[in-house]
């Protein structure tokens, strides 16, 4: 079983919606041992197979409003029953538990965006918050791996 999976998700053609992918790429650039990074546009069901194989998963996403960076523990409790082409982290955890009988320890780290218009690239606010979110994920991974 692997140690940590980081999944950054969002649409990079919608400005700061690309924060999740940017955070994941920043984490990947660190080359941390035992850490696998995935960049996806949206959470899809087959990711459950990967979640079932790790001890800890960190989802990185953009947020509208709220604090600059927020990190919360998640589990499948309260997940909605409806799954469409896309899922939220809690729904994906619920799917993992339902199909594979287990779910990894999970975190959702969000960074606030300022501009979600039709454009490529992050706003200055989004870029700064993405960097801070990558730092926070580094701390979470350190706690998991003892690094």
């Amino acid at each position: 079983m692997g140690d940590v999976l980081v999944i950054g998700y969002g649409n990079t053609l919608r400005g700061d919606d690309g924060i999740g992918p940017a955070v994941a790429e920043a984490v990947a650039a660190r080359g941390l041992p035992g850490v696998r990074v995935r960049v996806v546009q949206q959470l899809t069901p087959e990711l459950a197979a990967e979640l079932a194989e790790v001890r800890r998963v960190v989802f990185a996403d953009a947020a509208v409003g709220g604090g600059a960076v927020r990190a919360v523990r998640l589990d499948a409790t309260g997940a909605g029953g409806v799954m469409t082409h896309t899922a939220d982290p809690r729904g994906l955890l619920a799917l993992t538990r339902a199909v594979y009988g287990r779910e990894p320890e999970a975190w959702l780290v969000t960074a606030a965006g300022a501009d979600f218009g039709f454009r490529d690239g992050l706003s200055p606010t989004g870029r700064a918050n993405a960097g801070a979110a990558a730092e926070r994920i580094g701390q979470i991974i350190g706690e998991a791996t003892g690094a």
Partner: peptide
Amino acid sequence: CSTHAAGQMP
């Protein structure tokens, strides 16, 4: 989806 919508779609 132009942005990733939440999974819950009532």
